[in-house]
Write a protein that binds this DNA or RNA. Sequence first.
DNA 1: AACAAATACAACCGCCTAGGT
DNA 2: CACCTAGGCGGTTGTATTTGT
Length: 183
Amino acid sequence: MRRPCCDKQHTNKGAWSQQEDQKLVDYIQKHGEGCWRSLPQAAGLLRCGKSCRLRWRNYLRPDLKRDGFGEDEEDLIIRLHALLGNRWSLIAGRLPGRTDNEVKNYWNSHIRKKLEYSHRHVGFTRLRAEISAARSKNQANDPETFIDFNGGKLEPTSKSSSGINLDLTLSIPSKNFESSDEN
DNA sequence: AACAAATACAACCGCCTAGGT
DNA sequence: CACCTAGGCGGTTGTATTTGT
């Protein structure tokens, strides 16, 4: 049996209050991130360490964007998802100010529906064909190689108008590569 | 106006893995 | 090596809000 990450009987659950947020922010500003297990007690929070980490990373971090996703970002998510599947943290790593949770939620609630529509109406099918061709070309050369995949075309590095880094230099994972983008 | 259904997103859960011993 | 732990991840759930009837 796995030991629970904390004593759940003595922790709060559910939505965070403003006071809890403030305690967490204050503590991290003073001491920095790290040692999430001991943080709740040190910060005076009745929360599980994992919960603190999640709250900080997904909501309280000062570098997070809180506005909606732009077209550039949406396009990049679609392309990255076609390459990587549901590896949300990798995808989020390419989107400054975005979290894996945010990207995942956005995918599930917005993009997936759009793509279901697009699948039925040509456009996205063509994009996937391009991606697939790029993939097999790179794998054929050397399975360990890197893909330079810029905006769906094999072109040199560039940045989009909104400053998103579109230089998709990605090491191809050996397993689960043909992952769940068919749903 | 009242209710139901759909949507959006914050948060939780359990598994996996890297690193330390 | 095997074992343990903390941190990270993706899937899923819970709930507040919005939209439709």
